[in-house]
């Protein structure tokens, strides 16, 4: 017994040595920076504990930034989820030729990664004041888009732009779930007398809702954290959270570093909650996929 004890310890030490590089990396470049900001959100410039920073988040301009950010993220997530689901259902259950399916999936892989600055350029070239669609609508259809109140640098414009990566993401995540619906389930339902609406209501929707709702939350968090597209599209003209935070990091526009931490903390809270619910729902959905 006495002889085996040190051996065991040595094994334990090598075990932990093996994981040490990763642990150090994670602490230094992921956990510590986050913890630093989060804790900074709860102290004042003199280092005293306070909730003032969090309360200050509710001042009109910051609150407005959060509200518009949440609105854009929610709208692009919901729009992306609905259209993405329709597209995924079409390629998975619609009986289309298989080349359509693989073409759509490959394109979605590209488009879901086509975010950031280039995406902003593409939409400026499409729906900007001199964009192709704007000009075609004006010259061919006699419809003045901007005269009708549209602006790419607005809620609607940004939502439309974000959907360019939201829809593909939805398609990529939800198609496997739709593929997991067995043909026998629909056959069993119909032979038991169910209409296809009853089958969807009693079987498909209960099976899919955790995946769909979970993916919706993932899309929401995805849009909420998107900085580059917003910055490149709007410069600093639109007051949304990532842009406020970007400006704050650049030059302390809030004149209070700790308030800046609180803004970051608020972002983490919002994306964090949506991601945790996403992961939880995903585990729930996978329970049935055995």
């Amino acid at each position: 017994m006495a002889a085996t004890q040190p051996l065991l310890n040595r094994r334990l030490i090598t075990d932990w040595l093996g994981i040490a590089p990763f642990a150090i990396f994670a602490v230094m470049f992921l956990i510590a920076p986050t913890v630093y900001l989060v804790s900074g959100a709860f102290v004042d410039p003199n280092g005293n504990l306070t909730l003032q920073n969090l309360i200050d988040l509710f001042q009109p301009n910051i609150l407005a930034a959060y509200v518009i950010s949440i609105k854009i993220s929610a709208a692009s997530a919901i729009g992306g989820a609905i259209i993405g689901f329709a597209l995924a259902a079409a390629i998975s259950l619609g009986g289309l030729p298989s080349w359509v399916r693989s073409a759509v999936l490959t394109f979605c892989g590209v488009a879901s990664n086509f975010a950031g600055v280039p995406l902003a350029f593409a939409f400026l070239a499409t729906l900007g004041r001199l964009g192709l669609l704007t000009i075609v609508l004006r010259d061919v259809f006699g419809f003045n888009l901007y005269g009708a109140g549209f602006n790419l640098l607005s809620f609607l414009g940004l939502t439309l732009t974000y959907m360019y990566f939201q829809i593909p993401l939805m398609v990529l995540i939800i198609t496997p779930a739709l593929d997991g619906l067995k043909r026998e389930w629909s056959e069993a339902a119909s032979v038991l007398g169910a209409t296809s609406w009853q089958y969807w209501r009693m079987v498909v929707i209960p099976i899919l809702w955790p995946s769909v709702f979970g993916t919706l939350l993932l899309l929401f968090a995805n849009a909420f954290g998107a900085v580059a597209t917003a910055v490149a599209l709007t410069g600093s003209s639109l007051n949304i959270v990532p842009i406020v935070l970007f400006a704050q990091i650049r030059g302390d526009v809030l004149h209070n570093p700790n308030l800046g931490y609180a803004v970051a903390f608020g972002m983490v809270v919002i994306t964090g909650i949506s991601n945790f619910i996403y992961i939880w729902l995903r585990m729930r959905a996978e329970r049935w996929q055995k």
Binding site: F29, L30, A32, P33, T34, Y36, L37, A221, F224, G225, V227, P242, L245, F246, I249, G260, A264, M267, V268, T271, G272, N275, F276
Partner: peptide, 12 residues
């Protein structure tokens, strides 16, 4: 996935 890139770099 939870902590946005902008927050991580802010921490750095």
């Amino acid at each position: 996935l939870v902590v946005p890139a902008i927050v991580i770099i802010f921490g750095y």
